[in-house]
Design a protein around this nucleic acid. Structure first.
Ligand SMILES: [Mn+2]
Ligand SMILES: [Mn+2]
Ligand SMILES: [Zn+2]
Ligand SMILES: [Zn+2]
Lengths: 134, 134
DNA sequence: TTGTAAATGCAACTCGGTTGCATTTATATT
DNA sequence: AATATAAATGCAACCGAGTTGCATTTACAA
């Protein structure tokens, strides 16, 4: 995927092509693991404004450019690609050593046993373990 | 389970029997769904101090009296019983309508397919759907 | 080129959670 | 029962994630 494609991606989603957005996409697209707000802030040094960043993360998520992941750390992380909610459904791997979060190919498991009266819509899976780098 | 048992539970875990702790246990034990800090604050009106509450939640968790649950809301919730980490392992159900979190009998699924070099230790499962009350 | 809606930047705020410290309290020992 | 001691409490101050209102700037379509 190259520069011109990023631009296309944005206009296809009805989002204006701004400096911040291009920087963001460029960053996400070459990363193999999920990014938190502070990861992004640190990686994209150029004083990226906090609210602008958050607003763009939200826009991107709604547009399906990135998806939000909740490992159980308390802070949201984001990765490139369609949301697992109402998109393709996959599990996430959290390294217990380096805390890195990876998207897995692994699809969510099928049916679960829930009590009478409960209706399952979606199953979200976090796999905890040790990553290949650790 | 009755008053005298709560006291026993505490001393068995090496925790002093205090007013706050008895109130907390009494509350947790008769609840069928998980409680956040603000749930507790609201339910146990009697101006419960914030840090005292958090410190006790932590102590209780370490003692295995309650376990911490991370639905994907960003706030921690707690429920009575042993931690699923290094204790019995179960899934959690989050109602998409009322946001209530329930502990499920459902054990976590077996093996997952992870890439070469990754080692799975634990699988945590959140089931999203509609609860019996909604 | 210009008009307009959307995006940005900034400050101020909320809320969950933590920490240091002085005071109080539970409990073991005399 | 009196007392010593460690643990628990309460309070204030703090932190970091995330949000909001508002004035200014910018993308882009006419
Ligand atoms: Mn993912
Ligand atoms: Mn549970
Ligand atoms: Zn790792
Ligand atoms: Zn419900």
């Amino acid at each position: 995927m190259k520069e011109v494609d990023y631009k296309q991606l944005l206009e296809q989603k009805g989002l204006k092509k701004t400096k911040v957005r291009m920087t963001l996409i460029r960053h996400f697209v070459h990363l193999d693991h999920a990014q938190s707000y502070s990861d992004l802030q640190a990686a994209l040094v150029k004083e990226l404004d906090k609210s602008t960043l958050y607003r763009n993360l939200t826009s991107f998520e709604q547009a399906g450019i990135i998806h939000r992941i909740n490992d159980h750390s308390g802070v949201a992380k984001y990765a490139f690609g369609e949301s697992p909610i109402e998109g393709d459904d996959h599990a996430h791997f959290v390294c217990e050593c380096c805390e890195t979060v990876y998207c897995m190919e692994t699809p969510a498991p099928g049916e679960f046993n829930v009590p009478e009266g409960f209706k399952t819509n979606k199953v979200q899976t976090i796999i905890r373990g040790i990553c290949a780098d650790c």
